[in-house]
Design a binder for these strands. Sequence first.
DNA 1: GGCCCTGGTTACCCCGGGGATACCGGCTAT
DNA 2: ATAGCCGGTATCCCCGGGGTAACCAGGGCC
Lengths: 121, 121
Amino acid sequence: MFDELCPSSYNPIRFGDKWAALILACLEHGPRRFSELRVPLARVTPKVLTQSLRSLERDGMVKRTVYAEATPHVEYELTPLGRSLLGPLAVACAWTREHWDELLDARDAYDHAASEDRRAG
Amino acid sequence: MFDELCPSSYNPIRFGDKWAALILACLEHGPRRFSELRVPLARVTPKVLTQSLRSLERDGMVKRTVYAEATPHVEYELTPLGRSLLGPLAVACAWTREHWDELLDARDAYDHAASEDRRAG
DNA sequence: GGCCCTGGTTACCCCGGGGATACCGGCTAT
DNA sequence: ATAGCCGGTATCCCCGGGGTAACCAGGGCC
């Protein structure tokens, strides 16, 4: 559903901070461990991933659970509130799929016209 | 429809830059002049408003028209692309109306727990 | 000439998100 | 003992969004 997610900075519709939308999508189908999240989010440094997860946790979107068993680990999962964001997120993704090219074309046209103007003085 | 819009920074779902969602909402019902936009956006300085409008124009969301008549002025209006964002924007507003309190409660709880932890060491 | 309206621009500054890199403490397995 | 894995921290730095304040050019008006 969120195949074409990219860092939010490239999208006119954004959720939370730069990587939040991707994190929400990664958690859509169940809990994930920190190291599991690092795989699809390989370009995100651990510090930034922690920051983003803490922010989502603070906003009640994500629940963090520490399992202090023989092999201790941490799991992150969506709360009902976090899950309620998946609807708007899907709407945003649909908008982007449908209009992304149009937006890029508009940017090219605008930038081209701007450089023409500069040349003309 | 967008009665409760606030600067995007306070919202987990954001459109464009800080003031873009408010601008889209202001343009929903027809073209507006620069000075007309400054009324509902009184807290936004002209520089920042211009920046935001230029960005929306570059992305093909807004069309800027100069009327060089006896009394010259400028009008900003939504393009079809900009208008297509109103749907996702309405979805985002609905989400916020429904879940805003829940989010604030989560923040309070998180911050409170954090300060307790600090006290306990 | 002097003033206002319109739609901006210019210069300056500040803060915070987020990137790079390195390090860390607990636990287990061998 | 030492080498992993796990889930992070610590430090430093940079850039750009966005805020303040002041200034500006063209036209109309009186």
